[in-house]
């Protein structure tokens, strides 16, 4: 399949690029298994169990940039418990579907989110 309008839009105008001042958690993840090496640094700010701010930086392909941007859109204002339940498929659906070759992108973005929400695990 090709790229959806949402995918192109998030890739070309990514939300949440940058760093949060005094973040509550920062997660850094790298896709090493298949040799892709996309890397994400994701920071979150949480207040009363709600994610109030999300920012990221990435050395990554279009899919991972789009996935991180979609993640920012989706989880800002969400309860951490609900955000923790999000799956790569949820993110892919939010992007209007993704090609198979970009499955690693949504998996990596969700991995970064879960690591930020659960820093001890």
């Amino acid at each position: 399949m090709g790229y959806s309008q949402q995918y192109i839009e998030h890739f070309t105008n990514p939300r949440g690029i940058g760093d949060i001042e005094n973040p509550d958690a920062i997660a850094e993840v790298k896709h090493e298994g298949g040799g892709c090496f996309d890397t994400i640094r994701l920071g979150i700010k949480v207040s009363n169990g709600i994610i109030t701010d999300v920012k990221f930086r990435a050395r990554a392909c279009s899919g991972t940039i789009a996935a991180c941007s979609a993640l920012v859109d989706k989880v800002t204002g969400m309860k951490t418990d609900d955000a923790d339940k999000l799956t790569p498929d949820d993110l892919a659906n939010y992007l209007g579907g993704i090609p198979d070759k970009k499955q690693h992108s949504v998996e990596l973005a969700i991995e970064a989110l879960k690591k930020a929400i659960n820093p001890e695990s």
Binding site: F11, H31, G34, G35, D38, R59, C61, I65, K101, H104
Partner: peptide, 28 residues
């Protein structure tokens, strides 16, 4: 990432290719 460069150039009507893994399913 080369694939991200390629995609942005493509949107600017420039066709190139990349040595990037992320443009293929294998990721190598």
């Amino acid at each position: 990432e080369g694939e991200a460069i390629l995609m942005h150039l493509s949107m600017r009507e420039i066709c190139v290719s990349s040595g990037s893994a992320c443009s293929s399913k294998s990721l190598t």
